[in-house]
């Protein structure tokens, strides 16, 4: 298994890993067929505290599956998932999860949505309002506190769903293609927002995306996965100095070098998965988790 830089500086991690996958396998059994299919094969990953990591790979290679394992929403078929040195069993409430759909509650106002996690933790209303007001202001949504999600644009809803996760200050945040369905301009602005929010607290982020430039612009490391069954192909050290300017990331020193090497890897994978899909029958959509 080739790694450009295995875990950054060699295999013995110098900084304590907060999220660690050790030789993880995950298999799903498709609904009627009783045929098992590997989604992840021998995935090992060790994410140090405070770093921003991206995971990219062709669709269906198991990126979301990795996040679900870390969040404890499903269990590995083999291998272990560790959080802060402990095996993850059941739902892991120490991580925040930003899903691809914004998943805001339609009957709650923007502010009530942002405060949801604090409400669940029994934080008094005054304190909740104070913290939500600050975050809402920081992403430029002031004035929309009383609006319902249906009255907000896609970009605004996305911002809301991000600060809804940031507000309760989990040490680790998982983000699954959060900017997927947005238009290019809004994406850039939101990437900038996200980087700025992150710079303030430097929490650990695992960010799934299919956008190469986005991954480079945001991350310390980029994990490239190979097509099904998902395996880790390489881990890249981005090395572009911070703070970064996402709007001009193309001009940043070292950008094209990383970009070219990443692109070479990914285009291989895309070719493989496309060839495979052309040969495959249509995959069963409703499948039962093993």
């Amino acid at each position: 298994m080739a790694r450009v830089t295995a875990n950054g500086r060699g295999d013995a991690a110098p900084r304590a890993a907060v999220v660690e996958l050790v030789s993880v396998y995950k298999a799903f059994v498709a609904g009627g067929t009783r045929q098992a299919k590997l989604a992840l094969e021998d995935v090992s990953l060790s994410v140090p505290r405070g770093e921003f990591w991206s995971i990219i790979g062709p669709s269906g290679c198991g990126k979301s599956t990795i996040l679900n394992l870390i969040a404890g929403l499903s269990a590995p078929t083999d291998g272990t998932v560790l959080y802060d040195g402990r095996v993850v069993r059941g739902v892991n409430t120490d991580v925040g999860y930003v899903t691809q759909d914004d998943n805001l509650l339609p009957w709650r106002t923007l502010q009530a949505n942002v405060e949801l996690a604090l409400e669940l933790r029994g934080v008094p209303a005054a304190q909740r309002a104070e913290r939500s007001r600050e975050l809402i202001g920081r992403v430029g949504l002031s004035g929309f506190e009383r609006h319902y999600p249906a009255e907000l644009s896609g970009g605004m809803r996305k911002r809301a769903s991000i600060i809804r996760t940031l507000i309760y200050e989990t040490p680790v945040i998982l983000m699954d293609e959060p900017f997927g369905p947005l238009d290019a301009q809004t994406r850039l602005v939101l990437q900038d927002d996200l980087l700025r929010l992150w710079e303030r607290s430097r929490r650990t982020i695992l960010f799934v995306t299919h956008d190469l430039v986005e991954a480079i612009a945001l991350s310390d490391r980029v994990v490239v996965m190979s097509a099904a069954p998902g395996r880790i192909k390489r881990v890249y050290d981005v090395g572009i100095p911070r703070p970064r300017d996402v709007f001009h990331i193309h001009g940043a020193p070292g950008f094209s070098l990383v970009y070219d090497r990443l692109w070479a890897d990914i285009s291989d994978e895309i070719a493989v998965s496309r060839r495979r899909r052309a040969g495959d029958a249509v995959e069963a959509p409703e499948a039962v988790e093993s």
């Binding site: 396998y25 045929q35 098992a36 590997l38 021998d42 078929t77 083999d78």
Partner: peptide, 11 residues
């Protein structure tokens, strides 16, 4: 071999 084992276990 391990892959087979994992698949079997899932089924």
């Amino acid at each position: 071999a391990h892959r087979e084992h994992v698949l079997e276990r899932a089924v």
